[in-house]
């Protein structure tokens, strides 16, 4: 089955991961800009990182027939440093011109501080001015409810078009607000700290599936890109059709990401089963 992995931090993973993903059906990944595990000191470091994910990483993925797209942003954690963030923001529009950059992400809250909020709003404003898609990280664990609530308030206040926004790392306690307001939501499958494949399928069964994106993130921390395939298997073993699986794990990413014409992979219909 063809799968799109819409949230994948390729620079933190090996070529073998790309190879195995290709062998298990992954045809495209999208790589948001995120925290490197330490706070960077120089704006230029971000710009080289954006070059890495928009120029070099597509060549690594291409070696395994995987299309690679990306997002640029100052991540929520480093947004705590506004001076650095504004320097980076000045240069982000240059990257919007690149052939595989889809939008601004991942932005949002980590600890829901004043500085984070200021930079979140500045990046939303930048994205809207340049007609970019928006990917929002919602906080981890005990900070998730508060951060998601504040995120929704800010999006509503700034009148951001919900069709163009994806809130990621959504779980059972944060799903209703974003879906009711018309945003796209993402389930991030993690071994321990976020959502499991089984719980993701539970939510796929409980809520309308048209605006749900499932991903397994995969980064430099404890994570596993193949939780996505495990989720496909869980979905199929609960008796959902192949077409329903393709709709969630391939076509939904096409429909959201394809709002940016650079993402040119088209939804698939199974001709006969």
């Amino acid at each position: 089955m063809q799968i799109i992995q819409p949230h994948y931090h390729g620079i933190a993973r090996t070529a073998q991961d790309y190879e195995r993903m290709a062998m298990s059906g992954v045809v495209a990944v999208a790589e948001p800009a995120f925290w490197a595990g330490f706070d960077r000191l120089y704006p230029q470091t971000f710009l080289d990182y954006f070059r890495q994910i928009s120029e070099f990483e597509p060549t690594r993925a291409a070696a395994y027939n995987i299309r690679h797209f990306c997002w640029v942003a100052v991540n929520p954690k480093e947004a705590e440093n506004p001076e650095l963030s504004y320097e980076v923001l000045k240069h982000m529009p240059e990257f919007f011109e690149k052939p595989t950059v889809l939008g601004v992400g991942e932005i949002g809250f980590h600890k829901t501080t004043k500085n984070e909020e200021e930079i979140f709003e500045a990046q939303l404003e930048l994205a809207m001015r340049h007609d970019q898609l928006i990917l929002i990280h919602t906080p981890h664990l005990q900070d998730k409810v508060r951060g998601t609530r504040r995120t929704l308030e800010i999006l509503a206040h700034m009148k951001v078009n919900p069709d163009r926004v994806w809130l990621d790392h959504i779980e059972e306690h944060t799903i209703r607000g974003p879906l009711e307001a018309g945003y796209w939501v993402g389930f991030t499958l993690y071994p321990i700290t976020k959502c499991s494949p089984q719980r993701a399928v539970d939510m796929l069964e409980r809520y309308p599936r048209e605006r749900i994106l499932v991903n397994s993130s995969a980064d430099w921390g404890p994570s596993d890109p193949f939780l996505l395939q495990q989720c496909v298997l869980e979905f199929r073993r609960r008796k959902h059709s192949l077409q329903a699986a393709i709709d969630v794990f391939h076509n939904n990413p096409c429909r959201f990401l394809g709002q940016n014409p650079k993402f040119d992979i088209r939804p698939i219909r199974v001709a006969s089963l």
């Binding site: 321990i192 700290t193 499991s196 089984q198 719980r199 539970d202």
Partner: peptide, 10 residues
């Protein structure tokens, strides 16, 4: 915490 969430989900 993860194990409890799995039980709740089941």
């Amino acid at each position: 915490r993860c194990a409890l969430l799995d039980i709740a989900a089941t």
